[in-house]
Amino acid sequence: MKNIFSKEDSNDFINRINQLNYDSKAVWGKMSVDQMLAHCNVTYEMVYDDIHPKPNGFIKFILKVLVKSSVVNDNPYPRNSKTAQQFLIKGNRNFETEKTRLIGYINRTQELGENYFEGKESHSFGRLTAKEWNNMFAKHLDHHLSQFGV
């Protein structure tokens, strides 16, 4: 598993993102490249921006019990797996804007580092370790960059 808190690994993700262009095609799945970038930004929006409603207590409990382990473990996501409603991107997005936002989020996360994320509250899963945050960020990025062949 790549370490999103490592400058080298973060730069590797950024280099892969920079290989994309506005007409890159997915190897699998239905998203366009601009939608994929916007989709990847949602994870970071939930950390840095207050634009997504937090789940109520019951839903958060269900997410912690049924979903959390598959999101924060070391196992890669399977192709075409289901995603939460707030991660569904409808319509076209500006490729350059979404790409710039994602690179900015990756850099910000790397600069804040592991200590910032150790025990930090997740939007959906409660407190996570830095390792769980890393797994969530890194495997999501790897999954979707692989989806687009980079």
Rank of each mutant, 00 (worst) to 15 (best):
I4N: 10
F5V: 04
F5D: 02
F5M: 07
S6P: 07
E8K: 12
D9N: 14
S10C: 12
N11C: 05
D12K: 07
F13D: 05
I14P: 00
N15G: 13
I17Q: 02
N18D: 13
N18F: 01
L20V: 01
D23M: 06
W28C: 06
G29P: 06
M31F: 13
M31E: 11
S32F: 07
V33R: 05
Q35G: 10
Q35V: 10
M36W: 09
A38P: 09
H39L: 12
C40S: 15
C40H: 04
V47F: 07
V47W: 03
D50T: 02
H52W: 13
K54C: 03
P55N: 08
P55S: 10
N56G: 15
G57V: 04
G57L: 14
K60V: 04
K60H: 02
K60Q: 13
F61T: 08
F61L: 14
F61Q: 07
F61S: 12
L63P: 01
L63G: 03
K64H: 06
V65T: 11
V67A: 13
K68C: 08
S69N: 14
V71T: 08
V71I: 14
N73Q: 08
N73C: 14
N73L: 09
P76I: 05
Y77Q: 08
R79E: 15
S81H: 15
K82V: 12
A84G: 11
Q86T: 11
L88M: 13
L88P: 00
G91P: 05
G91S: 07
N92E: 15
R93G: 01
R93M: 13
F95N: 03
E96L: 10
T97D: 13
T97P: 00
K99V: 03
T100E: 15
Y105V: 04
N107P: 02
R108L: 14
R108Q: 14
T109H: 05
L112Y: 05
G113N: 06
N115G: 09
F117Y: 12
H123N: 09
H123L: 08
F125Y: 15
F125C: 07
G126K: 02
R127K: 15
T129Y: 03
K131H: 06
E132G: 05
W133Q: 02
N134T: 01
N134V: 03
N134A: 09
F137D: 00
A138N: 04
A138L: 09
A138E: 05
K139D: 00
H140L: 07
H140W: 03
H140R: 01
L141W: 02
L141D: 06
D142M: 06
H143T: 00
H143W: 09
G149S: 08
V150Y: 04
